[in-house]
């Protein structure tokens, strides 16, 4: 995307390892995120993708290797420290507090206040208006910013989390499988906002199971397999087919191509792995479907 001479590397991991007790979750993984670029991390379930981004977002500390933010070796103490360094994360499993209203979730942890001393209070008007306006900019016209965020559809929730990160001036946006629970159309919407964040100059780390999604928007690809790197490519150096093949691995390839062929026949089945559809879609889709009706 950006010409090579003006690339600014925002986050750089070199040979990073992470152990949970004696479980090796990551070993010698390297990755680079530059401003205005999307780095995709691909791999199967349990490959260590979430672990990798939890290191970047300050939730876990790495046990070996180096972690640089804008050229400076760093160990992040907690997620707050990561946020202060401009790294915002949209988590796979813990993005929002379901029972809280949308506007409270949007500003959670970074609430604007007005007044002084004992009269310091939340700037509720600003919070509501901003939430509504920022979501509208992402194409989400919310019925009511007071509704519990748990009642939004999966795609809307992801977009709230992305909008929040962009609004708070993140330099690096980390997304853990933002499209996993989503339908085709909503995946497209989320990917569009990921691309919009990139065009706004953010460095993006996008985690996904889905080589199609990755190849649509990615500039670099890091493949993980059982905690180790199985490949690292730039967009020009790999085709979608090759990416898919590398992800699947040789023996599983026949089965996969069989599956892909079947998926291609059905009118709206592309996009998700069968696992994700089965696990997430029915529950997450319900509110949206009702609304459309």
């Amino acid at each position: 995307m950006t010409p090579a001479n003006t690339r600014t590397t925002l986050v750089k991991l070199t040979g990073v390892s992470k152990y949970y007790g004696n479980i090796r979750a990551l070993e010698g993984v390297s990755l680079e995120v530059a401003a205005g670029e999307i780095t995709c991390v691909l791999g199967d379930n349990g490959a260590g993708k979430s672990t990798l981004i939890k290191i970047i977002s300050g939730l876990h500390r790495h046990d070996a290797g180096s972690f640089e933010i804008e050229g400076e070796e760093t160990v992040l103490a907690n997620p707050r420290a990561a946020l202060d360094r401009g790294i915002a994360t949209v988590y796979q499993d813990l993005a929002v507090v379901p029972l809280m209203p949308v506007w409270r979730n949007f500003f959670l942890g970074s609430e604007p206040t007005r007044g002084r001393g004992p009269f310091r209070r939340l700037d509720v008007g600003l919070m509501r208006e901003t939430t509504r306006a920022e979501l509208l900019r992402m194409g989400i016209d919310l019925r009511d910013v007071d509704q519990p965020i748990g009642t939004l559809s999966g795609g809307e929730r992801q977009c709230v989390a992305i909008a929040r990160a962009v609004y708070f001036g993140a330099k690096v946006l980390v997304l853990d499988e933002p499209t996993a629970a989503l339908g085709v159309k909503q995946s497209g919407v989320v990917l569009k906002y990921v691309a919009a964040a990139r065009d706004a100059g953010l460095g993006v780390v996008l985690i996904t199971h889905n080589p199609h999604h990755a190849h649509l928007v990615g500039d670099r690809f890091v493949l993980l397999k059982r905690g180790v790197m199985a490949g690292s490519h730039t967009r020009d150096s790999i085709t979608l087919d090759e990416l898919t093949r590398q992800m699947a691995g040789g023996s599983e390839l026949d089965e996969l191509s069989h599956e892909l062929a079947r998926v291609a026949q059905s009118p709206q089945g592309t996009g998700d792995t069968p696992y994700d559809q089965a696990a997430h879609r029915p529950a997450d889709r319900t509110p949206r479907d009702e609304r459309d009706a």
């Binding site: 988590y91 993005a95 507090v97 500003f107 939340l122």
Partner: peptide, 27 residues
């Protein structure tokens, strides 16, 4: 007043409603 109109109140709801999510966004 604390619950509905201060940052601390927002954090109380968040800690009870999803402690991991709260921690992840810096609460």
């Amino acid at each position: 007043w604390i619950l509905l109109r201060t940052r601390a109140g927002n954090w109380i709801f968040a800690v009870g409603g999803g402690a991991d999510a709260a921690r992840a966004v810096g609460v």
